[in-house]
Design a protein around this nucleic acid. Structure first.
Length: 468
RNA sequence: GGCGCAUUCGUCUAGGGGCCUAGGACACUACCCUCUCACGGUAGGAACACGGGUUCAAAUCCCGUAUGCGUCACCA
């Protein structure tokens, strides 16, 4: 085992799977399908994934659907799909609803061994209805477990009393099902959010009653909403699918969520899944919760967008542009759309930004001639006469030049740059750019002209001259 | 309230007794590039929760206080 830092004072709990000797590392993804896959679910899966793959271990996906009323197949499918989308996979799959006989069998055993008992009580949910719940006989001991992230944690289990482990002999509750499954599936490391810390002594008590081995625990802090409270539907516990629909890249979401609360030893920010696996050490996971910052996610996403192969970017940009341009009732032109890719490239962080851009009318002039306000044609501090003179000259120069110069912004620039520099670039270029775009802010006129082509460019310059 | 966990720039963090005048990233601001916008480049503001110890020396070790969060189900 190698520490990448050394210290004699700070306790560094064993974090390396090798400590288990010959034992294979086995971890689990235990989502309960009571809602769509949210960022917290993804984080749970990522941390378990990194640890397992780092130690060449096995990952068990276990759908914890013991709550029949709240669990839905649709949610389970979404969780599986979302996790695959960000690049994760697993080796074994189980569904707790298909394992009820196993739990019943173990429940029977505990009752016959007298470490649990059946208690007839009135239902809390349905007053008047009598239930035969199963309660664990709590020996009331002090329990200390070692957490791979936070060190030793001690609880006095007397506070727990004889807690309920099953609603009836045939309906095991969460804690019981989890402990039975973890044992049967030979889970070696339980890596989960720290909202489970206080559940741990309860589960250890069940393990001891069952006579099974205790896995190693690692409780990482939950990430927080901007109010620093645990994420809920209210405070932005956003589903992975909503990020996907907003046009975030899976690698970006994966990278951001993984490094939210974990810093790799190299200090690198942009890492692939493979690099993260290599660098991962569970004890480097932070002990305090981090606030999820959408702005930083956007930055990560932009980095991945920038890395994307040109053809791939262009193809997706096409689809996005067409979608919004059509919605704006503008005439879609694939040729123009293709030329727009570089402009889109330097202006967006997320695909949905294309939507904002187009919807705000930022790109209208690429698809239809702008409506000009004559007072805005001349540069500020310059007059209509001067603007007309420059536009006329530019029109002459551009129409006289070879038509091919319209295929490249640089060539258009070459054609008029000397003139513009001599006359004052603002005085010449502002009217040109405004004539082409009808906007006070836009890409430079050479880029616009090369996108819309010779005919449209000359036509718009004429229109501006006429409007003056 | 009991129990548990945590606390470094607005946010994510580096830090493991002298290397800290506390480093980086996001965001922000200014400047440069530039007709405008965007991109890019450079610079800047911005933090060790508080109080006691220990030590020649504390962001770092100890104790206390405060604050925040979690959890106390016949949910998971």
């Amino acid at each position: 085992m190698t520490w990448h830092k050394k210290s004699s004072t700070r306790p560094r709990p064993a974090s390396n799977g090798m400590n288990l000797g010959m034992n294979e590392v086995r971890v689990r993804f235990p989502p309960s399908p009571t809602g769509y896959c949210h960022v917290g679910t993804a984080r749970m899966a990522i941390l378990n994934y990194l640890f397992a793959r780092k130690h060449k271990g096995t990952i068990v996906f276990r759908s914890e659907d013991t709550d029949r009323e709240r669990s839905k197949g649709e949610y389970e499918a979404d969780i599986i799909d979302s996790l695959h989308w960000i690049g994760l996979d697993w080796d074994e799959f189980y569904r707790q609803s298909e394992r009820t006989e196993i739990y019943s069998h173990e429940l029977d055993r505990l009752v016959s061994e007298k470490s649990a008992y059946i208690s007839e009580e009135e239902s809390k949910k349905e007053p008047g209805k009598m239930l035969h719940v199963v309660r664990l006989k709590n020996p009331g001991t002090l329990i200390t477990f070692t957490d791979l992230i936070r060190g030793d944690i001690t609880f006095d289990t007397r506070e727990l009393g004889d807690f309920v482990i099953a609603r009836s002999l045939s309906e095991a509750l969460y804690h019981f099902a989890v402990v039975v499954d973890d044992a049967l599936m030979r889970i070696t490391h339980v890596i989960r959010g720290d909202d489970h810390i206080s559940n741990t002594p309860r589960q250890i008590l069940i393990q001891e009653a069952l006579g099974v081995e205790r896995p190693l625990y690692a409780h990482y802090p939950l990430h927080l909403g901007s109010d620093r409270a645990k994420l809920s539907k209210r405070t932005g516990d956003v589903s992975v699918r909503s990020y996907r629909e907003a046009g975030f890249l899976p690698q970006a979401l994966l990278n951001y969520v993984a490094t939210l609360g974990w810093t790799p030893p190299s200090g690198k920010e942009i890492l692939s899944l493979g690099e993260m696996v290599q660098e991962f050490d569970i004890s480097d996971v932070h002990k305090s919760g981090a606030v999820f910052d959408i702005e930083k996610l956007r930055w990560f996403n932009r980095q991945y967008l920038l890395q994307m192969p040109r053809e791939e970017f262009e193809a997706t940009a096409q689809v996005e542009l067409e979608k919004y341009v059509a919605a704006r009732k503008l005439l879609w032109d694939p040729e123009i759309g293709r030329k727009l890719a570089p402009i889109v490239h330097e202006r967006i962080s997320v695909w949905s930004d294309v939507g904002s851009l187009v919807t705000n009318g930022e790109f209208d002039y690429f698809f239809s001639d702008p409506t000009l306000v004559s007072a805005k044609i001349p540069e500020k501090g310059s007059g209509a006469g001067e603007a007309r003179r420059h536009l006329t000259t530019l029109h002459d120069k551009l129409s006289a030049a070879e038509p091919e110069i319209f295929s490249l912004p640089e060539r258009l620039k070459d054609a008029v740059w000397e003139y513009a520099t001599h006359e004052g670039r603002g005085k010449v270029l502002w009217p040109l750019r405004y004539a082409l775009s009808g906007k006070e802010r836009s890409p430079d006129p050479f880029v616009i002209a090369s996108v819309i082509g010779r005919d449209a460019a000359l036509r718009r310059i004429d229109a501006a001259i006429a409007a003056l």
